[in-house]
Design a protein around this nucleic acid. Structure first.
Length: 506
RNA sequence: CGGAGUGUAGCGUAGUCCGGUUAGCGCACCUGCUUUGGGAGCAGGGGGUCGGGAGUUCGAAUCUCUCCACUCCGACCA
């Protein structure tokens, strides 16, 4: 009987190597890199229901830090938190025509309220528990909230009403990706009511500015601010403004949206108020949200082949201490040495973590690099003897030897440098990959190369659709700093109504 | 919903074509000793309804039927 020759292909070997340690390099497969990092760094795991995700403690800590930062911002600007129900009467969704059209295809619907044990012992839905009116799991809360606002708003004295909620929402998506698009996700949704159109517009833009600050100052992600086109705006909004960020693969990610809803929802839910001069008017509304998608944005905006690179302001641990101890005496020595350092850092509100697991130092170096810790402190017997510590920056890989006495001052400074270093790196990456084009041929070449494309658009939705169908690139936004004068539409050749940003998007 | 593919330990897999020892290996896990300044070594150990069910057979991970689940591509959506 002929023996089969075992064949081991190079790709299997390569996979075996990448499975055991590290992550798939970005250049090899960006999507695989992304998933690898999330799973191996312990950010999240797949849930049992398709498209769902478990956010693990390390990943949730990032979200918590983002949440706390933004929560502070909105409270400082007069907003308050509340909580509205997860379940919405099905009929509410249908009140606003565009709104229902936008969400109908991705709603989870509750039809029954009970299970029972079948004759053969299996668990089945009890058909007798069918609901009179089926209930929708919120894909967003405009409709419940406005049904309540109708009760709460009577006069101009009740306005503005500035409420936010931190909640989960469900959108039954066909294709999901961890953090970027999951069936259930966490977000904040602000819903405000105003007496005038101008006030609502001002609120919409003020929030957009907070989103810009959150992205740039905390997440270290540079964003474009601008207006969505009709095709891309929120279902039920008059205008949608957005922040748009470039990821490491040069694709665009919508990182936050702020909507001016005009009187659409007020009319749909009949929310009126008495004005100062005793007239009746519908109120003006806004809504705005950012989600756990921001965690995905951080991963893709800053990550490298070693894994995550977290901006200090949102990193779960800003400084990770890796002790290097050969024996119990060393452990004691190092513990005594770092105790006052850790105390000082904590006094300074710096999040510091000591890794005393019994993995080898080399393992820990790689592990914390994968997990994106901004600063690593190595302390071994040599350092104790020399009264110093080795600091390694995650953003530049730079290794510094610092005197013990300097640490208190130097660490906050280093963290600030890393924060701005990551922002500057992302900014120059975006600059390198933003292209100004004049012809459709140039445009098509630029789409292939990836990145943001700035060019003229005649304002016609049909042009937008045609370009999307031919190239897969969409208009990400009409940036506030557009300069349409003298430009021509890339597709039709007509005079440009707007200068827009085209890109392939997530 | 259409097309293709895959189900063997927590993960990755060999074995399936051609039925025949106790289903093998790597990583991870547990115990002990030696180690620790860039992913440690040795020794020992635990873990399997071979996706489920039915059938063929003396005998099924392997053959047949059936059901289920998942992945990729398309469609849909952002």
């Amino acid at each position: 009987m002929p023996q089969r020759t075992p064949v081991i292909s190079a790709s299997i070997l390569l996979r075996a190597i990448t499975m055991s340690k590290g992550v798939t390099p970005q250049s090899k497969d960006y999507a695989a890199w992304y998933t690898d990092v999330i799973v191996k760094a312990g950010l999240a795991d797949y849930g049992p229901v398709k498209g769902t995700m478990v956010i693990k403690p390390y990943g949730f800590s990032i979200w918590d830090n983002i949440k706390e930062s933004f929560d502070r911002m909105i409270k400082e600007t007069g907003h308050v938190n509340a909580y509205f129900p997860l379940f919405i009467p099905k009929s509410y969704l249908a009140r606003e025509a565009e709104h229902i059209e936008g969400f109908a295809k991705e709603c989870a619907v509750v039809t029954h309220t009970r299970l029972k044990t079948d004759s053969d012992g299996s668990i089945v839905v009890d058909p007798e528990s069918r609901l009179e009116e089926e209930v929708v799991v919120r894909p967003t809360s405009e409709t419940v909230i406005w049904s309540m606002y109708k009760k709460w708003i009577q006069s101009y004295r009740d306005l503005p009403l500035l409420i936010n909620q931190w909640a989960n929402v469900v959108r039954w998506e066909m294709r999901t990706r961890l953090f970027l698009r999951t069936t259930e996700f966490l977000w904040q949704e602000g819903h405000t009511a105003h007496a005038t159109s101008a006030e609502a517009e001002e609120e919409t833009l003020n929030i957009l500015e907070l989103y810009r600050q959150l992205a740039e100052d905390y997440l270290a992600i540079p964003v474009l601010t601008g207006l969505k086109t009709e095709a891309e705006k929120f279902a039920g909004a008059e205008k949608t403004y957005c922040i748009e960020a470039m990821m490491g693969d040069k694709r665009s990610l919508q990182a936050g949206t702020s909507h001016n809803l005009g009187q659409n929802f007020a009319k749909a839910f009949d929310v009126t108020f008495q004005t100062k001069d005793n007239k009746e008017d519908h109120v003006y509304a806004t809504s705005w949200g950012v989600s756990t998608r921001l965690v995905g944005a951080v991963i893709m905006a800053h990550g490298d082949d070693k894994g995550l690179r977290l901006p200090p302001k949102i990193a779960p641990h800003q400084v990770v201490i890796v002790p290097i101890a050969r024996n119990e005496d060393h452990v004691k020595l190092i513990k005594d040495f770092i105790e006052p350092i850790v105390y000082g850092l904590k006094e300074n509100n710096i999040r510091v973590y000591e890794d005393w697991t019994d993995n080898s130092p080399g393992y820990k170096f790689n592990d914390w690099e994968m997990k994106g810790a901004p600063l690593r402190m190595e302390v071994g017997p040599r350092d104790v003897e020399n009264n110093q510590a080795i600091m390694v920056r995650r953003d530049t890989n730079e290794k510094l030897t610092l005197e013990k006495a300097e640490l208190d001052n130097q660490i906050p400074k280093l963290l600030d440098e890393i924060q701005s270093g990551l922002f500057e790196q992302a900014k120059s990456f975006r600059k390198e990959n933003t292209h100004f084009v004049k012809t459709y041929d140039e445009f098509k070449d630029a789409v292939v190369g990836g990145g943001f494309i700035r060019c003229g658009w005649d304002g016609d939705p049909e042009t937008e659709t045609a370009v999307k169908n031919e190239t897969k690139a969409t208009i990400r936004c009409i940036p506030f700093d557009e300069k349409p004068d003298g430009l021509q539409c890339i597709y039709s050749g007509k005079p440009a109504k707007h200068e827009v940003i085209y890109a392939k998007a997530y």
